[in-house]
Design a protein around this nucleic acid. Structure first.
Lengths: 200, 200
DNA sequence: GCTTGACTAGACCGACCGGTCTACTATCAT
DNA sequence: ATGATAGTAGACCGGTCGGTCTAGTCAAGC
């Protein structure tokens, strides 16, 4: 029972790293097994397919993400508008750290998988969608707070939150294409200028 | 000599469709050959490798793009700020049309390839980068015009143009993940709210 | 008519893909 | 001690991958 979870989580951690740094199609199960020091038989004992593995990887990353720096960035004790800056900073430092280690900016695992797999796998697309929805809700709660305390004028907080998420993903996409995390720092703060008015 | 260019361009057109609708890794050369009604030998006569093919595909799409709806959207005769709305509309209708035909939103070929390949192929990353730079320049020229005629207050037009491109890519990413082009219509207009001030 | 070179046809290559299968081991409860 | 069960080991499967190679077609230039 000890080795069980250990092997399983070792597979997930290895796969996560590889998928994040490369792509779903580019990483093979054999390679994951070697990286995780696990045999094929063990792999297929825990995961019925590569698809199921990546679903578990998404869950794993989403959990880390929600309880890690996102939770910090969206800390309720901070003034709402500052939380947005924190979020950008967190994204920057995360990408910067990964970039310094590997020499390449991995970007956002969810965004990467979304663009690679959305047209090929509806189940995965739905899961990625749910992750994005959760992220949007964080933005939305922040905006609601900001409007509530009068730091921002009333707006369509849901639509604006979605816009901010899109902008964040777009920034990361561009930064990855430039292989330069600094792009996040330069463009990031403008996220606060995004606004979608309430339609009536 | 007639069939030459015909075969070549048939390969490119087929590959473009397939890469756009799926992904680089997911589409094989054999499949492209079948789709283009061409034999392997002919394929490798025109393209030394799959990598070179996709480079040609990027060029092809970039050219179509620049001379097609982008040229229209960024029409110099339009008031600058309106051009931004045109650009969003054009992106929407393009994705909508593709989505109606295939049932799936393909997203932006450049964005798709950028996220899939940036960490794996620096040559391709550089090419995609150049495409993005050109797009940014279009935005920038528009913003410069807008500032010049006083429609917008002075700003860092280059940085703002980059931010707008990032936002556009982000919107398309989210829309693709939702498989719903309408997202572009809802979020798109907010591109005009993005602003990065001049730093002094 | 012969040669040349662009183009086509398609068999073929080793490597690797995701996934299956059988055999084996380690750890339980009884 | 035994049998059940969870997990490990790794050979093996058909299929596909990107890419090579040889043979042959065809039109233009001489």
């Amino acid at each position: 029972m000890k080795l069980d979870t250990d092997t399983r989580s070792r597979i997930i951690a290895t796969a996560r790293d590889m998928f994040h740094g490369r792509s779903y199609a580019d990483v093979g199960i054999q390679e994951i097994c070697i990286g995780a020091r696990v045999q094929k038989g063990s792999f297929y004992h825990f995961f019925p397919s590569k698809q199921e593995l990546v679903m578990a990887v998404i869950d794993d990353m989403a959990e880390d993400w929600a309880h890690g720096f996102v939770a910090e960035a969206f800390d309720q004790n901070l003034p709402p508008v500052e939380r947005l800056d924190y979020m950008i900073d967190a994204a920057y430092y995360w990408q910067k750290a990964a970039s310094d280690i590997k020499g390449r900016m991995p970007g956002c695992l969810f965004g990467n998988l979304a663009l690679e797999m959305s047209t090929r796998d509806d189940v995965m697309r739905a899961k990625l969608n749910a992750v994005f929805d959760k992220a949007r809700d964080r933005f939305r709660a922040t905006l609601d707070d900001a409007v509530h305390i009068g730091a921002l004028a009333a707006m369509d907080t849901e639509a604006t939150a979605t816009a901010m998420l899109a902008y964040l993903e777009g920034i990361i996409l561009l930064a990855k294409t430039r292989n330069d995390p600094e792009v996040i720092l330069v463009l990031g703060p403008a996220i606060k200028t995004l606004r979608i008015e309430l339609s009536h």
